[in-house]
């Protein structure tokens, strides 16, 4: 059973890590603690439902449409809500993201109805069996895709010119402006990336369960994940996501399925008490 739980924890944790990475990119760039990250994951799942089930697009095209819609959503949120409020207190902006998540939820339920939808994709659905270990192909695909995305974005930030300018913007806003960086464009891009990563996470979460606005709660596990990993740390978001996945699966299997939130937020509390800058965060700048 241990290996089985470890596998599920890893697979789900990889998805959480992906959504958390999106959260961290936005937070690093614009200092916005985005409570709507879970809602953005839900949007991704519904974009996929729309493209695949309603519009009937071929799968690769549907995925491209879903990614484009997610990116556009991030850009629109930055343009209409975040940028006009730049310079305001963190609390004001947090309230805006909470309001946004509520509005998104309501709009989705108005358009698609309150009941969930099944997302049927051509992704492989069988199960690999190795000894006692059952590995659903969907979990494997989700984990593999998450890691490919995380590696790709890591390489993007590290090795490309735009990635360099985004890191400069996150490091020091005013210095980046002084050095000729189009800071607004970089921030907009960060929101697009954050929304796309949430959307991909939402796609897989919707595949593993059904697509409904309830996915928001799972998407919001990105929050404890980034705080555990370290708010200012990109690798921390991934590690935090994995840990949250592990804690969830282990507590669910060994204690009770109802105990997962207690375990996750209990662990979060311990981190806040004894290491408030997170596991991989920076002690000086990353205190929560």
């Amino acid at each position: 059973m241990f290996a089985q739980v470890l596998f599920s924890g890893f697979a789900l944790g990889s998805i959480y890590g992906l959504v958390a990475l999106g959260f961290a990119v936005v937070f690093k760039a614009t200092q916005v603690f985005n409570f709507a990250q879970g809602a953005l994951a839900v949007c991704g799942a519904y974009f996929a439902v729309t493209a695949i089930s309603i519009l009937g697009l071929p799968f690769p095209l549907a995925i491209l449409a879903m990614l484009a819609a997610s990116a556009l959503l991030g850009v629109i949120i930055h343009m209409t809500l975040i940028q006009p409020l730049s310079g305001r207190s963190m609390l004001a902006i947090i309230m805006v993201t909470i309001a946004l998540s509520i509005v998104i939820r309501a709009v989705i339920e108005i358009i698609y109805g309150p009941q969930g939808r099944v997302l049927s994709t051509p992704l492989p659905t069988g199960v690999f069996i190795v000894g006692d270990l059952r590995m659903p192909k969907l979990h494997l695909t989700a984990a593999a895709t998450s890691w490919v995305c995380m590696a790709a974005f890591g390489a993007f930030f590290r090795f490309t010119r735009v990635g360099l300018l985004m890191r400069a913007t996150a490091d020091r806003h005013e210095a980046a402006m002084a050095a000729g960086v189009n800071v607004n464009l970089m921030n907009r891009l960060a929101w697009a990336i954050g929304s796309v990563l949430a959307g991909i996470g939402g796609l897989f979460l919707g595949q593993l369960q059904i697509v409904s606005t309830e996915l928001e709660t799972i998407g919001l596990l990105a929050l404890p994940a980034v705080v555990i990993g370290g708010l200012q740390s990109i690798p921390g978001a991934i590690v935090g996501g994995l840990l949250v996945g592990m804690i969830e699966q282990f507590s669910s299997s060994y204690i009770s399925p109802k105990s997962t939130d207690i375990a996750i937020y209990g662990f979060l509390l311990l981190i806040l008490l004894f290491r408030p800058w997170g596991l991989l965060g920076d002690q000086e700048t990353g205190r929560v």
């Binding site: 010119r161 360099l164 300018l165 890191r167 400069a168 980046a176 050095a179 000729g180 960086v181």
Partner: peptide, 9 residues
């Protein structure tokens, strides 16, 4: 990297 930000244009 700092210098490359200045050189990006």
């Amino acid at each position: 990297e700092n210098l490359m930000v200045g050189a990006a244009m």
